[in-house]
C-alpha cells in the first residue's frame, strides 16, 4: 500500500514542474524515446531529484524510528538530540569557512554526525536508554548550533545564504552524481536496520529480560545506533537535515500499522513526506521554498499536539 503511494508520489514529482507532462510522456521519456522537452527535463533534472528525495526520506524515516524506539521517547529524534546538528555544523563550516563544495562536504558531514553520536554515547555512559542521553544530546546540539551561527557570520552573504539553504534541507542540489553513493549507503543500511528490528521487542522488555531471551542487549543497542546514525548522516550529507521527517515518520507509521515496530512503513512514509513536501514547497507556494521549511511548518503543530497529549496521559515522556 505505502509502496504504491510512494511510487505515485515519485511519478507526480516527475510529471509536475515548470511544465506539466502527462504520465505517458514521462514514461516514454524515461524509456529513452525522444519526447520534445521531456527528454531532457525528466531524466536529467526531475528523476535525480525524485530519487534523492525518496532515498533521503527512507533514511530519515527509518533512523528516526530507531532512535525513538531505542530511547523510548517520541521526541528523541535525531533532529532534537544533536546528531543532525553535528552533521550540519561540520558542513556549514566546510562551506562557509573552508570554502569547500561538492562530495567532500558530504563526507565531512557524515564523519561528523558519527563522531557526535559517539561522543553522546560516551558521555551518557551506561544509561543509553534514558533521559540522560536525550538531555546530553540537547546540550551538545546547542553547542553545535553556536558553531553554525559563528560560521555564518564569517562567510559572505551569498555563502551564508547557501549554507542556510543547506541547513534547512533542500533538494535543489540533487543531481545525478550524488545519487549512486546515497543509493548504495541506503541499500546497505536499511536492510541492516530491518534485520536488527526484531531485537527491539526483546530490548523493550529491559536489558535483563533481553539477555534472558538470548538477545545481547548492549551489543544490539550499539549496532542499532550505528545503523541509525549512519542513515541520518548519509541523508543529511545529501540534502541537509530536512526538519522533522525523522521525527514525524515513526508516529505516523505507528498509527497506521499498530502493534509492531513500524520500521519499514516509517521509512516509506518518510520518503512520501519528503516528496510531497518538496512538491508543495516548489509549486504550491508563491516563492520556491526548500523542502525543509515545509516539513518544519507541518511538523510544528503535530509536535505541539504530541507533546501535550503524551504529557496529559502521563506517557513515556
Amino acid at each position: 500500500m505505502l509502496a504504491a503511494v510512494l511510487l505515485a508520489a515519485v511519478l507526480v514529482t516527475l510529471c509536475v514542474g515548470e511544465r506539466v507532462y502527462a504520465p505517458d510522456q514521462v514514461i516514454r521519456a524515461l524509456l529513452g524515446e525522444r519526447v520534445p522537452g521531456a527528454s531532457f527535463t525528466v531524466p536529467r533534472l526531475r528523476l535525480p531529484r525524485a530519487l534523492t528525495g525518496a532515498l533521503v526520506g527512507l533514511a530519515f524515516g527509518a533512523a528516526g524510528t530507531i532512535f525513538q524506539t531505542l530511547l523510548r521517547n517520541a521526541l528523541a529524534s535525531p533532529d532534537i538530540i544533536g546528531i543532525s546538528a553535528g552533521a550540519s555544523a561540520a558542513a556549514v563550516v566546510a562551506i562557509a569557512i573552508l570554502g569547500l563544495s561538492g562530495p567532500i562536504v558530504s563526507a565531512i558531514a557524515v564523519a561528523s554526525g558519527i563522531l557526535v553520536a559517539l561522543v553522546l554515547v560516551l558521555l551518557a555512559g551506561r544509561g543509553i536508554a534514558g533521559s540522560r542521553f536525550v538531555l546530553i544530546g540537547i546540550g551538545v546540539g546547542a553547542l553545535l548550533n553556536a558553531v553554525v551561527s559563528y560560521a555564518l557570520t564569517r562567510a559572505g552573504v551569498d555563502q551564508a545564504s547557501q549554507a542556510l539553504r543547506w541547513l534547512t534541507g533542500s533538494l535543489n542540489e540533487a543531481f545525478w552524481p550524488g545519487v549512486p553513493p546515497l543509493a548504495i549507503a541506503v541499500a546497505v543500511l536499511l536492510p541492516a536496520a530491518l534485520l536488527l528490528a526484531p531485537r527491539f521487542g526483546a530490548l523493550q522488555l529491559g536489558d535483563d529480560a533481553a539477555e534472558a531471551l538470548g538477545v545481547p542487549a548492549a551489543r544490539s543497542r550499539l549496532w542499532l545506533i550505528v545503523v541509525a546514525v549512519g542513515l541520518v548522516a548519509v541523508g543529511t550529507a545529501a540534502t541537509g537535515p530536512i526538519a522533522f521527517v525523522a521525527f514525524l515518520s515513526g508516529p505516523i507509521a505507528g498509527r497506521l500499522v499498530p502493534g509492531r515496530i513500524p520500521l519499514l512503513p516509517a521509512a516509506l512514509i518518510g520518503a512520501v513526506l519528503v516528496l510531497v513536501a518538496d512538491l508543495i514547497g516548489q509549486h504550491l507556494l508563491g516563492t520556491r521554498f526548500p523542502v525543509g521549511v515545509v516539513t518544519g511548518a507541518v511538523g510544528a503543530p503535530y509536535l505541539l499536539w504530541l507533546l501535550s497529549r503524551t504529557n496529559r496521559t502521563g506517557g513515556s515522556l
Partner: peptide
C-alpha cells in the same frame, strides 16, 4: 526532561519558521 524536550522541540520549530522568512529575504 519534559521542559528541556519541549524547549528543544519548540526551538527547532521556531527555527524552521525563521529560515522560511530568512530564505525569502536575503
Amino acid at each position: 526532561l519534559k521542559l528541556a524536550l519541549a524547549g528543544a522541540a519548540t526551538s527547532a520549530t521556531l527555527y524552521s519558521l525563521l529560515s522560511g522568512v530568512l530564505l525569502s529575504r536575503t
